[in-house]
Amino acid sequence: MLSPWGISLAVLYVLRKRPVPGTHFSLSVQSIPGILGMNVVFTGLLGVAIALTMDREDGTLLRAKATPNGMLGYLIGRVTSRAAMTIAGLLIILIPAAFLFHGLHLRDFLSWLKLAGILLLGLMATLPIGAILGALFSNAQSIGIISLPMMGLVAISGIFYPITALPGWLQRAAQEFPVYWLGLGMRSVLLPNAMSAAEIGGSWRQPEMIFVLGGWAVIGFLLAPAVLRRMARRESGSSVARRREKARRRQA
């Protein structure tokens, strides 16, 4: 988990002199908040999804089902640990970045508080979706398929380059998903206000950000219980055995 973030930090450090077009601000520094947002999606959403499919394959989930209140305990445990790892991932990027780059707003308590708020909202928007995806895909291999479109989504979400450079229809597509808004939210907290000029509409659009992320959170929390219940209901000894057999054949 450390290494991809380490690599991206190293790349950004090398490119730190390149400015955001039309400004004197470092493009690298501009990217860091977006990377933090991306971390929420990858560590959080994808992490939960992968954990759920793997835990179905090795019987962890069935074990939980065989234990009184085990399913509830399992889900709380998984979500909490994923949230903790997401927060850790964020700090792993943010702390070195604070020393390596100049221009991030990390000096005052208020920006940390806002950062925590956006992170919380981001987790609520992404973790239930991750759980839903994890419940729908039958094994860890097939979940790999969804990481591909996710990369595409990151590419169009203005993480590494301002989204305004993209054609309009791609901008509109990106704005349907949480990755862009998480990045934007993080930028609104960590970058100087003047940088909002590079955004769509020249604004941080915080109310819209809260609205979209909140919307994803609502959808997730509405759907996840039913999808997870369905997944739990279908879990049995023979389904674990069948999946295991499949995995064995794949290896052979």
């Binding site: 835990d55 090795d58 019987g59 962890t60 069935l62 074990r63 065989a66 234990t67 009184p68 000894g237 674990v240 055995a241 295991r244």
Partner: peptide, 14 residues
């Protein structure tokens, strides 16, 4: 559920 114990064929968890 708490009154039952279950041992299945293929557990590799934890």
């Amino acid at each position: 559920r708490a009154r039952l114990g279950i041992v299945l064929q293929s557990w590799r968890d934890h």
